[in-house]
Design a protein around this nucleic acid. Structure first.
Lengths: 194, 194, 194, 194
DNA sequence: GATGAATGAGAATTCATTCAT
DNA sequence: TATGAATGAATTCTCATTCAT
């Protein structure tokens, strides 16, 4: 399967590395092409434009995240356990791909409206997983009632996102995965003890 | 006081509006100058370059946030009450300045390393306030023990930041302030009831 | 041979004409590009920057001067004859390229230190030819003894340069080549008869 | 006399130093004003524009050159002695004002046509002195007949100019005045001995 | 499919000059 | 006279994208 459209994947992987190291704006298409060992023009046989590369990186990797997450939480019973597993897996996958982490946490936060729209679109499947966990928790009667589930999802996503961003901004100098349990506890039981 | 350096403040306010409406990259300096009713060159009497405008907006407004927040939480006793007030005030101030909200949540998330460094620098005073609340909570014995306080701060900041960003991305179509109490509850007591 | 890198030569020739007519500072890159029938950006595929065009014009033409001069003086025996031939050829070549004369005598006399350094570098081969004639004259015992050969070279170059500059500043309204013999005589035997 | 219009002379002297050290294009009016201890706007009370400063420097100093030269050659009898004295004085005065030398030999060689016209105008009195020496030499029957006196003048000026320029470009590292006698000999008797 | 030479739109910034004080 | 804050015109160069081969 990786044999198919080999240049496509060469470009994706080249882009991740180049963008992580230089930032999106300083990552000229020709630089990406060189890293991917293709000609500049070849990029445009596989991608609509430069932003499409960025989005495609995100889409490609997000699909993998979603797939893995779905598999992983399927093996857990309770909503709380699923959430714990979800966080742990997210941290694990990003820890294994430091360049990807930089791209998703920093470079993808571009402001161009169309790009933001696309990103949110790609993010949907991922957020759906969080939603499904929350739904299960509500059905099981474990999750606080009377609160907008979307707000809860924002709490979960905000926690994961901010902890990963901090870790990236601090040059990934500590273990993200080791934080997973604490983050889960804080989310589930709150910051305060009484 | 607003009499002092009037052009400086004209430019700051002009920039917020123009950048919120067009995005940073599409906000030509000449566009900002025109909105601020000054000549293009005048911008460079007060700002080092275009990015310096963005940083200065953030610095200027953040200082106000910090000042107001400090005052507000001073009037509350417990750590929990202070946190509630802090969240409420953050939401209130941003609700009153929709353009500013767009700038801080979307446009400021640029990737240029130097800019990120500056932003973090400006953010410090703000994060210190969160830290002080957490410290008080720990001294009062209310906050969960054995967890890195920095991690707790990330949970708080992540929650606030993500909820505001979502609100901005959904065109500020609902009331942010009305969410304050729920966010506070979810943070303090957790998502789960048992 | 002119087939090779045709755009490079198009730009060189276009630049000579545009710069001669407008002066270097008033010769916008886009003007040169238009005259050369290439896109603005194409200039930067062949030249580092605008100044590099100027230097390249000089380097390109100077190489031709050196080549022709070397050939021409090779056909003469005595140092004096070689000097006469050298002066005559210099005048002839510049007379045939009035635009080039303007560029070398006026536009190239820029003040930016880096440019001056480059110009001197390019000039070296040309000055070497003068030096070789002077050396031969010394070996033949014809040239005044006890004088620094470098000073003699400055006399020769100064005479040629000043006569050409005057001719350019007077709009090339008289024949430069017709002066060659007189200049040679004055240099060789001096201004005075006794 | 120097008491009169003190700011005018402050600016002239400030300009010479700033321009010699930075080059004309890198010598912002504000930089000259600062060195001269006047406000930017004050410059325009004494000079029409930035180029007018450059021309005024040249005019001011050239007038002094002409005055001194006239006095000096008046004390010599023969044309040859006068020429020797003229060269010696030129070298001496420039050696005493290294900044001025840089300005006249390098910075003044700007290409803007109007500027060139002005420079030539200022130069006239100076060239007249050379012409008067040549005329005397012709009347005395010492100077080669049948040669255009203007061409002779170009030889003299070219020799002086080129030797000074070389000395400036070599950072004034050797004694210019010591060359005076040799230059005079070479001019008068020619480079060749027979 | 693959190439890479050529294109050309687009904007930040400088700095000589002005003029209200 | 003297000031210096404000003005705004003016241009190089980059780089995403195209298309003839």
């Amino acid at each position: 399967m990786i044999k198919k459209r080999p240049k496509y994947h060469q470009i994706i992987e080249g882009a991740i590395e180049v963008i992580a190291q230089n930032g999106f704006h300083a990552s000229q298409v020709s630089k990406i092409a060189k890293k991917a060992n293709v000609a500049d023009g070849t990029i445009y046989l596989y991608f609509k434009n430069k932003e499409d590369i960025l989005i495609s990186v995100f889409r490609e990797k997000m699909a993998y995240f979603v797939e893995e997450s779905a598999k992983a939480i399927d093996m857990k019973e309770s909503a709380s356990d699923k959430l714990a597993e979800f966080i742990r897996l997210h941290y694990t996958l990003l820890s294994e791909s430091p360049y990807l982490a930089i791209v998703t946490q920093l470079e993808l936060r571009q402001s161009k409206p169309e790009l933001r729209y696309e990103i949110n679109n790609v993010l949907k499947d991922y957020l759906n997983i969080i939603d499904s966990i929350i739904n299960q928790g509500m059905e099981e009667g474990n999750i606080r009632e009377g609160v907008n589930p979307k707000l809860i999802r924002q709490m979960v996503f905000g926690a994961i996102d901010e902890t990963v961003t901090t870790w990236v901004m601090e040059a990934q100098r500590y273990s993200l995965v080791e934080q997973a349990e604490d983050v889960h506890q804080l989310l589930v039981h709150g910051l305060f003890t009484n």
